[in-house]
C-alpha cells in the first residue's frame, strides 16, 4: 500500500525540486489536481462572488424567496450558472478537504475511513443539488 503524500511533500513534488526546465515533471494525478485548483479557483472568483452579490448586496437575503428563484431559473442560463457554481465549488472544496485529510489524518485506516465518508457525502450532495436544478419547474 502506498502512502499518500502530505501537502508539503506535494508542494515539493510540484516544484520539481530541480530548476523548472531541467527535467520534465511527472504528470500524475496530483499535478492535475494542483492545476484544477488554480483553474476552478479563478472561475469561482466570478461565479461565487456574483452569486453572493445577487443574493446579498443587489437583493437583500429576505427577498431571495421561492418566487425569486422561480424567476431566475426560468432562464436556463442561470440554471447553467448555478450548476457550474455547484460543480466547481463542490469539487474544488472537496479536493481541498482531501489535502487536509492527508495532512492531519495519519493512520491509514482512519484516513481511508474519513475519505470514504467525505467522498460519499459529497457525491450524494452533488447528485442531489444537480437534481434540484434540473427538476425544478
Amino acid at each position: 500500500m502506498t502512502s499518500t503524500p502530505s501537502t508539503d511533500e506535494r508542494r515539493l513534488a510540484v516544484a520539481g525540486g530541480a530548476p523548472a526546465r531541467a527535467r520534465r515533471p511527472r504528470q500524475n494525478f496530483e499535478t492535475w489536481s494542483w492545476f484544477f485548483m488554480r483553474v476552478s479557483g479563478l472561475v469561482l472568483v466570478f461565479l461565487a462572488l456574483v452569486h453572493f452579490a445577487l443574493t446579498h448586496i443587489i437583493n437583500d437575503v429576505v427577498e431571495t424567496d421561492a418566487a425569486f428563484v422561480a424567476e431566475r431559473w426560468d432562464n436556463p442560463l442561470w440554471r447553467l450558472f448555478d450548476w457550474s457554481l455547484l460543480a466547481l465549488a463542490l469539487f474544488h472544496g472537496l479536493n481541498g478537504v482531501r489535502w487536509s485529510i492527508d495532512d492531519y489524518v495519519r493512520s491509514p485506516a482512519w484516513r481511508a475511513g474519513v475519505k470514504a465518508v467525505v467522498y460519499t457525502g459529497s457525491g450524494i450532495l452533488f447528485a442531489y443539488g444537480t437534481f434540484t436544478i434540473v427538476t425544478f419547474a
Binding site: A48, D65, A66, V69, L86, A89, L90, G93, L94, G96, V97, S100, G121, S122, L125, Y128, G129, F131, T132, T135, F136
Partner: peptide, 26 residues
C-alpha cells in the same frame, strides 16, 4: 475554504427544499 465548503453542503439541502414545498423553502 473549509468554512465555505461546509456551508455549501448545508446550502445544497436548504435550496433543495424548494422542490419539496415552496412554503417550506420560504
Amino acid at each position: 475554504g473549509m468554512l465555505v465548503f461546509l456551508f455549501l453542503l448545508l446550502h445544497i439541502v436548504d435550496v433543495s427544499l424548494i422542490n419539496i414545498s415552496t412554503e417550506l423553502y420560504d
